[in-house]
């Protein structure tokens, strides 16, 4: 279960044009689409943008991953639809809201599928984000799968000792999590100490500004990608001009 959510946003190394794009460009486009997704309520715009996201997902050979994560998120999508329907009594509204959710998750998922945490850290750092922050980010991305494995190990160890998470009332079930959460917590703390030792031993914190041995540079593909994005925006703006009110 925990693994499902981790997988929904996990980077996978592949050789595609999208993977090779500059992480700053990808960040810009993906956040851009997500923002439009948050603002708009127009079904045509949502459909149009979603189709474009699907094209990007296909180009990055991540369709399978995306479909799997949608499956993992089915529950949330239904939840959104039902709650919208209950508050507005409108079926169309319910559909629009869940479609919007799908749009936003797809725009963010291709970004995470195709951008290594490290590239993202590098992008943040070269965009002026302080290195402590971008390192914290890179490290948490790097260690989330490790912690997820650790979770699985502790869970397995306690299952062997007869732990059952599906038994009893809500309070009992919550309490049943303690034999997993306490060891996990202890282990995470222990690891944190070791990681921070290792960082310091490699001279981290020596200079306010670290140097970068690989500088990010925009390539032709990046410009083409950006141009397509701007074109998409232009189409949406035009659409807005013709059909102003939604």
């Amino acid at each position: 279960m925990a693994m499902n959510f981790v997988k929904a946003y996990q980077f996978s190394r592949k050789e595609t044009t999208i993977h090779a794009l500059d992480p700053r460009v990808k960040l810009f486009v993906s956040v851009g689409v997500a923002i439009i997704g948050i603002i708009t309520l127009d079904p045509i715009e949502i459909a149009f943008l979603t189709v474009i996201q699907i094209i990007i997902l296909a180009l990055s050979k991540s369709m399978k991953l995306w479909l799997r994560s949608l499956k993992a998120l089915t529950f949330f999508i239904l939840l959104i639809a039902v709650s919208q329907y209950l508050t507005t009594q409108s079926l169309i509204q319910a559909i629009i809201f869940s479609a919007r959710f799908i749009l936003i998750t797809s725009a963010t998922s291709w970004f995470f599928y195709t951008t290594s945490p490290e590239d993202l850290g590098r992008a943040l750092e070269q965009m002026g984000v302080p290195s402590d922050f971008s390192l914290a980010f890179t490290l948490s991305m790097r260690f989330i799968p490790v912690i997820a494995n650790e979770f699985q190990d502790v869970y397995d160890a306690q299952r062997v000792r007869g732990l059952n998470l599906e038994k009893g009332n809500l309070l009992e079930r919550t309490k049943a999590f303690l034999p997993i959460l306490i060891p996990l917590f202890v282990e995470v703390i222990r690891r944190t100490y070791e990681i921070s030792d290792a960082l310091e031993l490699r001279g981290y914190g020596f200079k306010e500004k670290r140097s970068h041995w690989k500088e990010l540079k925009l390539t032709t593909n990046d410009y083409i990608f950006l141009a397509f994005f701007l074109l998409t925006i232009a189409i949406i703006v035009l659409h807005r001009l013709y059909y102003p009110l939604v």
């Binding site: 502790v154 000792r161 060891p183």
Partner: peptide, 17 residues
């Protein structure tokens, strides 16, 4: 687990009580 049991690597990691 009524018949088979397993000791994991570094079993001290499972303490919680």
């Amino acid at each position: 687990s009524k018949k088979v049991s397993m000791i994991f690597q570094n079993p001290e990691k499972q303490f919680f009580a």
